Simulated scan of single mutants.
Amino acid sequence: MKRIGLFFGTFNPIHIGHLVLANHMVEFSDLDEVWFVITPQSPFKTNQSLLDNHHRYQMVYEALADYPKLKPSKIEFNLPQPNYTINTLTYLYEEYLGTHRFALIMGEDNLKSFHKWKNYEVILENHEIFVYPRISEGKTVSKLLDHPKIRQVDAPIMEISSSFIRREHGLGKNVRPLLPEKVWKYMDEMNFYRK
């Protein structure tokens, strides 16, 4: 059975921090692949800085082209909105019954609020969660840290954010080293995130 790590995000844009982290997960754990699950733009929110789904998918696709164990996924684009992780996991379970097992990948900052997620107990009961370190205010104090399904991974800490890239690129700063080369080219040609 194939073991898949699900890495959720808007990837607006995807950057080298995402790649380093996902590659670490797939090379230094028992995961066979990591799928980048691109969060769709909510029809209920209009976020000016969030690019259309297909542009973000294209950038993720370009970024992962040279990494056979890392895959782009637009699975959530076709699920009802607003979408909850439990719904995506249920869909994937039914779609890949008997052939794939799915785990979540999240930063320890997200683990702090995980108990507020819809049906979080069901997620924990059925899926492992790979938690990577983040620099954040205070240590993660969560009774979930000792849960048998929570696996803390000693991954590199990458404090690069998509919002930083968007903001600084908009101000004319050179953010090229923070992006995979193909993502930079696509972003530059399409004139994204410029004021």
Rank of each mutant, 00 (worst) to 15 (best):
V122M: 06
F11C: 14
N53Q: 09
L50C: 01
M59A: 12
G17M: 08
K116G: 00
D66V: 15
T46R: 02
S161V: 00
R101Y: 13
M106K: 07
T10A: 12
P82Q: 04
M25G: 13
D30H: 08
T85Y: 12
V34H: 02
L51Y: 00
N110M: 11
F28M: 10
Y96P: 04
L92S: 11
W117C: 01
T39G: 12
L145E: 08
T85Q: 11
W117E: 00
E137F: 09
S161A: 04
T39S: 15
E121Q: 07
V20W: 01
M59N: 05
A63H: 08
L19R: 01
L144A: 10
S163Q: 08
G17F: 08
K118D: 02
T140C: 13
P133L: 14
G5C: 13
M59T: 07
V131R: 03
I157C: 00
F28P: 05
E181S: 13
L31C: 02
Y91T: 09
P43S: 04
E62A: 15
M190D: 08
M59E: 06
P40S: 15
L79W: 03
D66H: 14
G9N: 14
E137W: 05
S136E: 11
L6S: 12
F164D: 00
A22Y: 05
S161W: 00
A63V: 14
